[in-house]
Nucleic acid binder design. Structure first.
Ligand code: MN
Ligand code: MN
Ligand code: MN
Ligand code: MN
Lengths: 228, 228
DNA sequence: AATCGATTTTTGACTCATCAAACTTCCAAT
DNA sequence: ATTGGAAGTTTGATGAGTCAAAAATCGATT
């Protein structure tokens, strides 16, 4: 099989990420989800998934969904590696805003050679996470998958480290940056009000920030850093 | 008209460069040249050129050839700008070899946004030439076109500056690098022998180098730098 | 002027990726 | 058990880009 096209890479990556996002154990991704993630109509996704299945990259169960094979998983993880290393490179070396790098990396991930990516990896000191806190797969496609809590489920009035942001929307990221809600910052939840649909945060420098529960669910936190 | 596809960008760039390389005044590029530059069969080039003509990017004269319109020229120059800035960036910032960056830039030139390219341009200090001495068009597509002599036509026993290398072949560039025949180096031609098909050079550090006339024609030189 | 060969164009076919719209399957609620 | 609607699949068509091979054109040489 020749090099995978950008289209194939995008399908594999979308399936990979949809599998991860699946709350239930079954990693079967329904065609509707896949189609909307890729901005194609469902029929297109069905057709494409069938050809991916013939290439041995996915297993396809009609009317049920699709999941990656080991081969598909590895390819998808390497695309994700290129994407995330490229994002971090654009922020750290080129000086772009973390709010903008996703769209740029969305195209560069298909054009950058393995040599370039490895060089970038080296320059950055083999980083573990990208600017949004997303883990970066290694050269073999292996990726750490820490289980973080969200600002909806974490304990109240406890110091926590903001570890990851699971939304790449430019405006949302810009807002977070202005609010100093970026990975690494120490924050605590002061209160939650489901009825009012809000979460009250206390950030670095005693900043007080109110966000909706939809937004709070996209902010993942880890236990505070070990003392000393 | 939507964004030009990579294919369209590649056609325009190839026509642009073929026009420049044309020794005769007529900037008409024959279909055969274009086809082989793009590694497609002639029929493919004909078909594509007709659709480019319909988009107003080229003027096409059947059985004679093709040339860029003003619109086509600008688009082509901007692709070349992206290519050459990317090459220089890969050498200067990423630390890749000048022998390797052409192939990498060949793909990245279609994926990099104008924002990224302008940021790179700024980082590099608005450079005038790429690692091979090729001039870099500005944001408007304007490009300096100095008329250099080659090592085949330049005066003998005169100090000259190697200004530009008009071949992107990896092995050739590697050889030049090892021989210290890179842009900026001061060299002089000691002798030429058409029968023997060779040119004898004296490079920096009194290096003595013999190259064939085919290779010599690819090395462009300028008058030596002003004293002081 | 006639012709031969190189170059170019045309034709017909093919792959990849996509959509619209008709059709099928499945399941949750009656 | 039926059935209505949501989700998924199939079918037929389209556009971009390509090739192989047949046909047409052009110009250089006789
Ligand atoms: Mn991203
Ligand atoms: Mn990211
Ligand atoms: Mn190049
Ligand atoms: Mn170059």
């Amino acid at each position: 099989m020749a090099l995978p096209s950008s289209t194939v890479e995008n399908y594999l990556k979308a399936i990979y990420q949809a599998e991860m996002a699946q709350e239930d154990g079954t990693r079967l991704v329904p065609m509707g989800r896949l189609a909307s993630a890729l901005h194609v109509v469902p029929g297109t996704a069905t057709t494409m998934v069938k050809t991916l299945a013939e290439s041995g990259l996915v297993r396809y169960e009609p009317y049920a969904g699709v999941r990656l094979t080991a081969a598909g998983q590895k390819l998808a993880a390497l695309v994700l590696r290129r994407h995330r290393l490229m994002e971090l490179f654009l922020v750290e070396v080129v000086g772009m805003s973390w709010a903008d790098v996703h769209d740029e990396a969305e195209r560069l991930e298909h054009a950058a050679s393995d040599r370039l990516i490895d060089r970038i990896d080296e320059m950055l000191g083999r980083p573990a996470v990208d600017p949004h806190g997303d883990p970066i797969p290694d050269q073999d496609g292996a990726m750490a998958t820490p289980r973080y809590q969200t600002l909806l489920t974490c304990p109240i009035d406890t110091a926590l480290v903001l570890a990851r942001v699971t939304d790449q929307d430019t405006d949302f990221l810009r807002f977070l940056e202005q609010s100093h809600l970026t990975p690494g910052e120490v924050i605590r939840v002061e209160s939650r009000d489901a009825a009012a649909d809000h979460v009250l945060l206390r950030g670095a420098g005693d900043r007080s920030i109110v966000i909706g529960m939809r937004a709070a669910a996209k902010l993942l936190v880890a236990p505070p850093p070990p003392p000393g």
